[in-house]
Amino acid sequence: MKAPDFAYARPTVLSEVFDLLDGDGDVRLLAGGQSLVPSLNMRLSAPSLLVDINRLPGLSGIEARDGVVRIGALTRHGEIARSALIAERLPLLAMAAPHIAHAAIRNRGTFGGSIALADPAAEWPACCLALGATMVVASRAGERRVAAGDFFTGLFATALRRGEVLVAIEIASPPAGSVAHFSELARRRGDYAIVGLAAQVARAEDGAMDPRLAFFGVGDRPVLAEATRRVIAGGGGIADAQATLGRDLAPTGDAECAGATKLHLARVLLGRAMAALRTRGDA
């Protein structure tokens, strides 16, 4: 189908974006368009005005300062996949990137767009949770910072308020010895995950693990498995951890499969992750 009629604006400074967002009607930001334009074409949304932020300077790019990697909201999925800085500092993101859609969609879709959309089965929000990322949000009132744990508030819902723009995501480099693990189960390459796991795991010299385990596709938003983390940090084995995961996750069924199946699959991913982490030598 074709998109409904709407007005289009392409501001070149952030203050203009704020002016436009203040206007009447359903005003939407247009970033990569890889989620918004399909929803327009399918007539699932009918905004009155699209504000294209693709030509705003300063919203794109990856840079490191003081142990923090700052990723501009407009940075494309593909740029993250190909970035040497990301591969070195935040390998979790490099591992996750190839699972997001397909090359042509990764060429256009943006990091910030995916995070602002907050699809519960999306890779980037879960990675942000596992990495303890900070979202940098701008409005006419200035900038504020929101921790990933407070940012994702529900199904396609975030802490972003009307008039706000997500401008960047800041992620501290994980400490030395910490390793990343990413895996997901999907029916076809490039599909959204049925269930996925993004993990950043601190490891002590004696082999003790303290994992931040972010599961996605298991509810209305990505979930940090805190009880399971404590069991693993306390030296629990795979079976203990898998049993405990039932306290962290209560997946609801969707078009893909039943909630009980999702919990089973999450346990499978957890078991594989722990087995892989034990045998990995790249601490």
């Binding site: 189908m1 890889q34 334009v37 074409n41 294209d52 593909g78 060429n107 256009r108």
Partner: peptide
């Protein structure tokens, strides 16, 4: 499909393959 799934509409914009159905013509200015 006109929602990004089939790839039939793939073209190059500024050297990169993109979905022609998921980019507005005004954006190609």
């Amino acid at each position: 499909c006109e929602h990004g799934v089939c790839g039939a509409c793939t073209v190059r914009v500024d050297g990169m393959a993109v979905r022609g159905c998921l980019m507005l013509a005004v954006q190609a200015d």
